[in-house]
Amino acid sequence: MMTWVAKAIGVLVVAAAIAIGSAWAVLLHYPLQTDIANGSWRTSLAVGSTSADPYTRARVALTGLFALNPSEAIYFSANVDNAGRPLRTHCTYVIDGKPFVAQWWSITAYADDNFLIPNPANRFSFNMGNVPTGTDGRYRIVASSAEQTGNWLPTGTGGRGLILTLRLYNASPEILRQLSSIELPSIKLAGSCP
């Protein structure tokens, strides 16, 4: 009798470990079926939607609580650079892009705990109102831990994962139709990254 109970408890513990581990991996580390990829960036039209699937709802709760549905805002997220290498806070990246047709847009840096990164400049993002564009109409932002001249997006000290979020509020219908093909900012590693 005792052996049977011990086995049942063992099964329950192993099953719970498999269940929680697999849920954690799927929700935080793997693309969902509804994800739309565009270069380094990913988004989903299911985010915030009343027809969202349970996996999308769980991911929203863990990584972007109170996300708006796509008719109001589109959220692109990147945790890899152009070459597919994981973004790290101690590396330097050049973010190069052109403005979007939207009521407003912004690019924000988060640490891998999904919170803003402490930095001496108290700068956490650039938006359409404060990022200057060059004569070619493009903006260039340098994301790095070391202070830069120009558009510096600080990534803090300490080596950990970096997440960039691109928000597009009230994006144009063209953007909504071409989420997988519109030009999004490139994220290029500058120099080497140990």
């Binding site: 099964v11 099953a15 719970a16 498999i18 269940a19 929680i20 349970p54 709802r57 709760a61 609580l65």
Partner: peptide
């Protein structure tokens, strides 16, 4: 038999966890 039971139970718990995460986080907030 134990293996099948374990995997089946893991699948049920997995679905429950995914379903509960948003509800619990919202309720806590």
């Amino acid at each position: 038999r134990w293996f099948v039971v374990t995997i089946g139970l893991a699948a049920v718990i997995h679905v429950a966890v995914v379903w509960l995460v948003p509800v619990v986080i919202m309720r806590v907030f």
